[in-house]
Every structure is written in structure tokens, then in C-alpha cells.
Simulated assay, not measured.
Amino acid sequence: MTRTVYVNGEYLPETEASVSIFDRGFLFADAVYEVTSVLNGKLIDFEGHAVRLARSLNELGMENPISKEDLLEVHRELVRVNEIDEGLVYLQISRGADSDRDFVFPDPEKVKPTVVLFTQNKPGLAATVKPMKVISIDDIRWGRRDIKTVQLLYPSMGKMMAKAAGADDAWLIEDGFVTEGTSNNVYIVKDGKIITRGLSNDILHGITRAAVLRFAEEAQMEIEERNFTIEEAQNADEAFFTSASAFVMPVVEIDGKALGNGAPGNVALRLREIYLDESLKKAV
């Protein structure tokens, strides 16, 4: 089945969609993105993704070319025409395509942003719980990880390093402390306490992270936002990560060392259950 995608105001078959070779997203990774999950044909945490999108664009001095209301309508239409029950909607906005390649930003009066959206069908997305094994690697990314840009080469390399080591993902280490996963926020649990790095420019301000911590607090779970080392993580009772596409996923091994009894922890599994239940109630 050929997907219908959205490019600059048009719904098109994916085989007919294209952007300019001079688009700055292609030439400079001068673009931001969001990924919104779809469960039961409805969008999860759309409001949070829309707010973060606006923030990322603002941090890069980029015009927001589409209103939140119109963006919601595009998401819903793509979900409808592509018959997505469980899956993802990917959104990317670049600074646009100038007439030639130049490091200097183009005049926003002359060059308008490029807006692209497409869906990914993921049957069983909510039901999939995979105990994850991770390795640690140096964090050598740029310093503004709080902006959700498409500069994802090193995270992609990190996932390939993990695959080569027989693991599922990598946790990034900077100045001796864990920052985040290649595409997720990370947590450890010790004596019932959830520990995760605090918000700053060093990590992405995860939409799922915010929701999960709010639900954990409402469930009267203890939370501590602070830095932690990979050694502390290896000696934790359990660990997990959160993202829009994985929700809450348990981690059972770090750099070859099993956590606890080597099985998904109760805190991670309970938070996943709460997150899915509560998010579905508010889905649009």
C-alpha cells in the first residue's frame, strides 16, 4: 500500500513526494522534528509535541509555518487516509530551500520553511515489551540537545555500536555521568526511588518523560532528578527508558551486567501500564 504523505500543504502519494536538493534540512541538518504516537487511531500527547516543536523552532530562529490547529488536522488526516490504528506520525520542518548552498541563513521573507509529515504503521506498538540490553558510549554530540533537531548521525552510530556489541541501544556518557539514550530519556530505580537526570541543555526535554514523571508522582512514587554514573546504574535494582515510540521500556542489562534478577522491573512495568492507560484517556 502506498502511503499518503504531506509536503508543503499538499497530500501526495509517497512515490510523488519530493523536496529540493537545496533544502537546508538535507544540506545542513537545519531542521527540527517531532514524532507522535498513534494508539487506537488517536494521537498521544499531541499538545506536548506541538509546544516543543514551537520551542525548537524559536531556539533556531526559524519561522513556525503552520498553526497548532492546522498541524493537528494534518496529523489526523494522515492517520485517517493511511488507516493507522497503531503507529507513528513523523513531522519535520526545515528552514527551507534557497537557490544555492550557503552557510548563512537565507532571508525568511524569501525562503519559507519546508514542512513534511508521514506515517509509520506499527501494529502491536502498545503490546510490545522488550527487555533491553544497553552499552555505554561517549557523548560527543553538540551542546544543545534540548532542541529536537535532525542532527542524528551520532545517535544512529551509537545504535549501530550497540548492535555490533549484541545489545539493543546505547547510553551516552559525558563527564562521567549518563546523559540519555540515543533516542530516549533514561532512568534507574534504587530502593523504590526513580532517579533521572534533571532538565538542561544536555538532554532532550522528553514529552513522554514529563508525562511519566507526572504519573509517577501521582502514584506517590519517589523521584529524584540528578546525575548518575554508569556504575550506579549497573548496581541499581532496575532501569528503563522513555520515548514517544517506546513509551516505557525496561532495561535489564548495562555493559554486560544484569540488573536485579535480569527481568523487567516492577516499577518500569507499572509505569508503562499507567502511561498507556492515562494517555489513551486524553488522546486526540
Rank of each mutant, 00 (worst) to 15 (best):
V248A: 04
R55M: 06
A268S: 13
I93Q: 07
G48S: 12
S37Q: 05
N201A: 11
G260F: 07
S18M: 11
L71V: 02
A54P: 03
P65N: 08
V32R: 04
S56N: 13
W142C: 05
V150I: 14
D202V: 08
L269W: 03
I147W: 03
K133F: 00
A164S: 14
A54D: 14
E238T: 10
K130Y: 00
R24N: 11
T128F: 11
V111W: 09
K281F: 02
R52P: 04
G87M: 08
D168H: 14
A54K: 14
L12S: 02
V186I: 14
T242F: 08
L152T: 06
D98E: 10
P264G: 10
H49E: 08
P250A: 08
D146S: 07
V129M: 09
L88D: 12
G124I: 07
L43F: 05
K68E: 14
I195Y: 00
P123C: 10
E180H: 06
K193A: 06
T114E: 12
E47T: 15
D202W: 00
V115C: 02
R214L: 09
E253I: 11
A263Q: 15
V150W: 00
E225K: 14
E232L: 06
A167Q: 05
F26C: 09
R80C: 03
K190V: 11
N121R: 10
L43K: 05
T36F: 04
K190R: 15
R272W: 02
M249I: 04
A244W: 01
R3W: 00
L60N: 10
P250N: 07
Q120Y: 06
T114K: 11
T36I: 15
F240W: 08
I44K: 03
V248L: 06
E69N: 11
N40Q: 14
D100C: 04
N58D: 15
I93W: 03
E238S: 07
A268K: 01
V186K: 00
P123W: 10
D168E: 08
E69M: 07
T182C: 15
S245F: 13
R270Q: 10
V5F: 01
S279R: 09
R226V: 05
Y11I: 01
I254N: 03
D45G: 01
E218W: 05
S18P: 02
F241N: 12
E273C: 03
R197Y: 01
F103E: 13
R145M: 12
E218V: 10
E174N: 12
Q151F: 01
